[in-house]
Amino acid sequence: MTDQRQSLPFEPKSAPKGQSQGSRKGGSAPAQRQEAIPKPVANRMARRVAIFTGLPSLAGMGVFVLSYVLMTRGIADIAPGVTLAGSGFFFLLGLAGLSYGVLSASWEKNNGSLLGLENVKPNLQRMRESIRAQKESKS
């Protein structure tokens, strides 16, 4: 009554019945796991996401602070809708930065350029191929 399911791309392959993870290669040392995203690439992605999401999010919060300071000191009369629209814009920019941070990271040994524009197209193609392969394996 075991339920057979296909493993996800990032899950380690399980050992056949009767074998433990360590005995798969014949030694007592644990088998090396295949990573879906190499650690240097994941670190590069995390840095880019932190920058491209963090800075717009800080700007979104800064709109509230700036609006408050300008209103309380009598420098400008800002409508609440303008404050809301301004902060909303920066938070949406941060949301777009989340995707851009992942898609602009280089999968090569070198870090790539500062903005990573040359990596977006190949990474989108990799993502499409991965989705296509998952759909084909399900049917």
Rank of each mutant, 00 (worst) to 15 (best):
K135M: 10
L124Q: 10
S87H: 07
P122S: 07
M61P: 00
K121T: 09
L117K: 13
R33A: 15
S113F: 02
A85G: 09
G60S: 14
L103P: 00
S113M: 09
P40G: 06
L55R: 02
L124T: 03
S23F: 01
P38T: 02
A42L: 15
V49A: 03
P38A: 13
A133M: 08
S104A: 15
E129C: 09
V120D: 00
K135H: 05
S113A: 13
N119P: 01
R128D: 13
P9M: 11
Q32R: 13
G97W: 04
M61H: 07
L95M: 14
E129Q: 14
P12I: 07
G112L: 06
V65Q: 04
L55M: 14
Q21W: 12
T72F: 10
G97L: 05
A79I: 01
V41R: 11
M61N: 13
V120G: 02
V49P: 01
A29N: 06
V41L: 10
S130E: 11
T53S: 15
S57M: 11
F64A: 14
S57V: 05
M71W: 06
G26Y: 03
R126A: 05
A50K: 12
R47F: 11
Q125N: 09
S106K: 10
N123I: 06
E136D: 06
A96G: 06
V63G: 00
S130R: 08
L124E: 06
G54A: 03
R33C: 05
M61G: 15
S106T: 06
L95R: 12
E136W: 01
L8V: 06
I75M: 10
G62E: 07
Q34P: 01
R126K: 14
M127E: 01
V102M: 05
R48E: 04
A96R: 04
N43P: 02
V102P: 00
L98T: 02
G101H: 03
S113Q: 07
V41Q: 05
E118S: 15
G74L: 06
N110F: 01
N110K: 14
I37W: 02
M45E: 12
P30C: 07
V49I: 15
G60T: 02
I75E: 13
Q134G: 10
R128C: 07
L92S: 14
S113E: 15
K13S: 15
A42C: 07
G116C: 09
G94I: 04
K121A: 15
R44L: 03
A31K: 08
S139N: 13
P40K: 09
A46T: 05
S130P: 00
A50W: 10
G18Y: 08
S139F: 02
A46D: 07
A85P: 00
S139L: 12
R44V: 04
L95S: 10
E11L: 09
A59V: 05
G81I: 03
S130W: 08
I51P: 03
R24D: 06
F90Q: 04
M1C: 08
R44G: 01
S23K: 09
M61S: 14
M1Y: 06
V65T: 13
P16Q: 07
N119K: 09
L92N: 11
P56F: 03
A36Q: 14
E108A: 12
